[in-house]
Simulated assay, not measured.
Amino acid sequence: MADWLSLAAAPTFAFMALASGVLSTGMPDPLCTTAGQGMTMNPMLLMYVLMSVFHLGPWLRLLDRWRIGRRLMTAAERYLP
């Protein structure tokens, strides 16, 4: 169950990045500005993109297992009559 739950983090953060990018008002957050210079990108968007990238590990392991399984299956098919 924990393996499947770990797969939920990356898509959730990707969706939140998309939502914060689409729903952003374009106004810089006063807490994120320094000396009147605001970030050109929404800081929440940047955070959610980074969190999504950091949580890609379980997806990469799943794809690797799938790829290895396919490779083993095609190798076995070569030796079957």
Rank of each mutant, 00 (worst) to 15 (best):
Leu60Tyr: 08
His55Thr: 15
Leu7Met: 14
Arg61Cys: 03
Pro11Asp: 13
Leu56Trp: 02
Thr25Gly: 12
Glu77Gly: 05
Tyr79Arg: 15
Phe15His: 08
Phe15Gly: 14
Met1Val: 11
Tyr79Leu: 14
Ala75Phe: 09
Leu62Ser: 08
Thr34Ala: 06
Pro11Ala: 14
Asp64Phe: 02
Arg61Val: 14
Arg65Asn: 13
Pro81Asn: 11
Arg65Cys: 05
Thr25Ile: 04
Leu72His: 02
Tyr79Asp: 13
Leu46Asn: 01
Ile68Ala: 04
Ala10Arg: 00
Gly26Met: 04
Met51Asp: 03
Trp59His: 15
Trp59Glu: 05
Val49Gln: 01
Asn42Cys: 14
Gln37Arg: 10
His55Met: 12
Thr34Pro: 00
Asp3His: 08
Cys32Pro: 01
Met41Gln: 07
Leu62Phe: 13
Met73Thr: 09
Ala8Gly: 13
His55Pro: 00
Arg71Asn: 05
Gly26Asn: 03
Ala76Pro: 00
Ser24Thr: 07
Phe13Ala: 14
Ala19Met: 09
Ala17Val: 03
Gly36Ala: 06
Trp4Leu: 09
Trp59Pro: 10
Val53Met: 11
Gly21Val: 00
Gly57Tyr: 13
Glu77Tyr: 06
Leu50Ser: 04
Ala10Cys: 15
Pro81Phe: 10
Thr40Glu: 05
Leu31Gly: 05
Asp3Cys: 01
Asp3Tyr: 10
Pro30Leu: 07
Met73Asn: 08
Thr74Leu: 02
Leu60Pro: 01
Pro81Leu: 13
Trp59Phe: 15
Phe15Leu: 15
Thr34Val: 12
Leu46His: 04
Trp4Arg: 08
Ser6Ala: 11
Ala19Pro: 00
Ser6Lys: 12
Val53Lys: 02
Gly57His: 10
Asp29Tyr: 03
Leu46Val: 11
Leu31Gln: 10
Ala9Ile: 11
Ala14Glu: 02
Val49Tyr: 00
Leu46Ala: 14
Thr33Lys: 07
Leu45Ile: 07
Leu72Pro: 00
Leu7Pro: 10
Pro58Tyr: 12
Thr12Phe: 15
Gly21Ile: 00
Asp29Met: 04
Leu46Gln: 04
Thr33Tyr: 00
Ala35Tyr: 02
Leu63Gln: 06
Pro81Val: 07
Val53Asp: 00
Leu5Tyr: 03
Tyr48Arg: 06
Ala9Cys: 09
Pro81Ile: 06
Phe13Met: 15
Gly26Val: 04
Met44Asp: 05
Ala76Gln: 10
Leu62Arg: 15
Gly36Asn: 04
Tyr48Met: 14
Ala10Asp: 00
Asn42Leu: 06
Thr25Arg: 05
Arg78Lys: 14
Gly36Trp: 05
Trp4Thr: 00
Ser6His: 09
Gln37Leu: 09
Arg78Ser: 08
Arg61Trp: 07
Ala35Thr: 03
Ile68Glu: 02
Met1Asn: 12
Ile68Thr: 07
Leu80Met: 14
Ala75Glu: 14
Met41Trp: 04
Thr74Glu: 04
Met73Arg: 14
Met41Thr: 06
Leu7Val: 06
Trp59Leu: 15
Thr25Ser: 15
Glu77Met: 04
Thr74Met: 04
Ala8Pro: 01
Ala10Thr: 12
Leu5Lys: 08
Leu18Thr: 13
Val53Gly: 08
Ser6Thr: 11
Met51Gln: 06
Gly26Thr: 05
Thr74Arg: 08
Ser24Ile: 01
Pro43His: 04
Met41Tyr: 00
Cys32Phe: 07
Asp64Cys: 02
Arg65Met: 10
Leu18Glu: 10
Gln37Glu: 08
Leu56Phe: 12
Arg71Gly: 01
Val22Phe: 11
Val53Ala: 14
Leu62Tyr: 13
Ala2Val: 07
